[in-house]
Design a protein around this nucleic acid. Structure first.
Lengths: 114, 114
DNA sequence: TTGACATATGAACAATTGATCATATATTAG
DNA sequence: CTAATATATGATCAATTGTTCATATGTCAA
């Protein structure tokens, strides 16, 4: 191990690679975003919302899970600014927060379809 | 709950949303891809590899973790076709498998920078 | 062949996570 | 106000996951 640390094969590339890694906070936010999309229930919610806004009740029907479970997942997505919501009376409508999320979905779709 | 299932607020949207959700296998592959990027160690590896190819030894140095740990993570990334490798004597060089991964990284970076 | 080095893998353990159930909050109707 | 409905949240528990350590494999040099 020691030896290996000392004779890194491509020092300049390693340096460049290290410089290219985002700072710890940014990296953490990025992994949080990916983690949010790494659960089938949440990905279902997000892909569903990529067509139009939906309320919690509808999302539960779409995902085939309980409203409580959906609500828990929505909180995670909300905290990560992946979804926004607006209240209309008793109903809360959710939609995607920005277009980057749509991009993430479509890129991953293309990736797995190869 | 029963009641809610029966009076879905926007039936046509729900139908459209359901139709837009990829089939189970595709969805699983997508979540696997996101999961792969949802770990700080693996995201470090991937962002490092987005600059140039690197060997396991270098990646360990870049990530500040053991070569064993890196190797374990690389296997996961390999299985998901996120990275490729080529062997040159004793050294194994890793690089990103395709450009979709780069896109995923840059999109998530833009997302968190807002 | 043997020894050294780079990488890979298996097992085990600690930490994280998603679902469930019960309960709480928010809004409207009456 | 109270009742009903839609959503949110807290606690618990089972399942999953990343790291570590030990060991195995693969490659080259002598």
């Amino acid at each position: 191990m020691e030896q290996c640390q000392e004779k890194i094969l491509h020092m300049s590339q390693v340096k460049r690679a290290v410089d290219n890694i985002p700072d710890a906070n940014t990296l953490q936010s990025m992994t949080d975003t990916f983690k949010a999309l790494s659960d089938p229930s949440r990905l279902k919610i997000v892909t569903a919302l990529s067509t139009c806004e939906l309320c919690v009740c509808d999302l539960a029907a779409v995902c085939g899970s309980s409203e409580s479970a959906v609500s828990h997942q929505l909180r995670i997505l909300r905290n990560l600014k992946i979804v926004r919501y607006r209240r209309e009376g008793k109903i809360v409508f959710y939609r995607l927060d920005d277009d980057h999320v749509k991009s993430l979905i479509s890129q991953s779709l293309q990736h797995v379809k190869e």
